[in-house]
């Protein structure tokens, strides 16, 4: 199962990002794991400086904005 982590200090954009990923996975009928990472040390550990960031199976795939629906779909299906 794919594991998603949304990196962010808990701002609105980060919450939106997590919601978008969950909703898209439900739409596609694919089970995923998703968690929010709010600990600053952990976020920086991924080398991400601009949030929200998205980590897919421990690899950073996105940072600095709410991702587009197209890229979310690509990650879930990849």
């Amino acid at each position: 199962m794919k594991n998603f982590k949304v990196l962010g200090s808990g701002c609105k954009k980060c919450a939106t990002t997590a919601d978008l990923i969950s909703a898209k996975a439900a739409d596609l009928g694919i089970d995923i794991e998703i968690e929010k990472v709010t600990d600053m040390g952990a976020i920086m550990g991924y080398g991400v400086m601009s949030t929200p960031g998205v980590v897919l199976n421990e690899a950073v795939v996105h940072s600095g904005s709410i991702p587009t629906p197209k890229s979310i779909e690509d990650w879930i299906k990849s």
Binding site: G8, S9, M40, I43, M49, S50, T51
Partner: peptide, 17 residues
Amino acid sequence: TPFCSCSSVPLFIGFLE
């Protein structure tokens, strides 16, 4: 540079680091 205010903290740490 575009960044949202909620990125101030990681940005701050990243710069100092």
